[in-house]
């Protein structure tokens, strides 16, 4: 039976060639020119804005998802150092809620996200979170949460 163990083990040994495995997180870059929105940025009701960001990965990008939800309860999960001036805590009536996935063509290491987003005229004005989630093909996820205002 130990013989069997050795055979299995040998099988394991020969496989142990450490293929290049991806151990790095993808990067969301909002510092590129015309990236939008920025921390403490503002979007207008009844208008369309364009979400622009550069995403990169050492191996291969997966997908991007955007989540806009209200922060009327001040549940700060902003990942940014800079804090923004926030309105008073309030009860939502018709808050803007948007969850959108942006597909990235396969095989890319760098991609410029350009996505237009409508802000309905009847949405509640106030503080919102703009959450960007980026995954690479290996499954590493980077989250960036920024605070924005809807006016």
């Amino acid at each position: 039976m130990c013989l069997l163990a050795i055979i299995i083990l040998a099988g394991g040994c020969s496989k142990n060639n450490e293929e290049t495995k991806d151990t790095e997180y993808p990067v969301i870059d909002l510092s590129v020119a015309d990236a939008f929105p920025q921390q403490c940025g503002t979007v207008k009701r009844g208008q369309t804005f364009t979400f622009r960001a550069r995403v990169t990965d050492n191996a291969e990008l997966g997908s991007v998802s955007v989540d806009i939800h209200h922060n009327f309860d001040h549940h700060s999960h902003s990942t940014e150092v800079q804090t923004c001036q926030m309105g008073a805590v309030k009860t939502p009536v018709n808050p803007l809620l948007l969850i959108k996935s942006i597909s990235i063509p396969t095989g890319l290491k760098t991609y410029n996200v350009v996505q237009s987003i409508d802000v309905p005229a009847n949405a509640d004005a106030g503080d919102y979170h703009f959450l960007i989630r980026l995954v690479d093909k290996a499954g590493w996820q980077t989250i960036k949460g920024i605070s924005i205002k809807v006016e």
Partner: peptide, 13 residues
């Protein structure tokens, strides 16, 4: 995975 899901996963990985 390297994907997000909207309908069931509310935009999560």
């Amino acid at each position: 995975t390297g994907r997000h899901d909207i309908l069931y996963g509310a935009g999560n990985q």
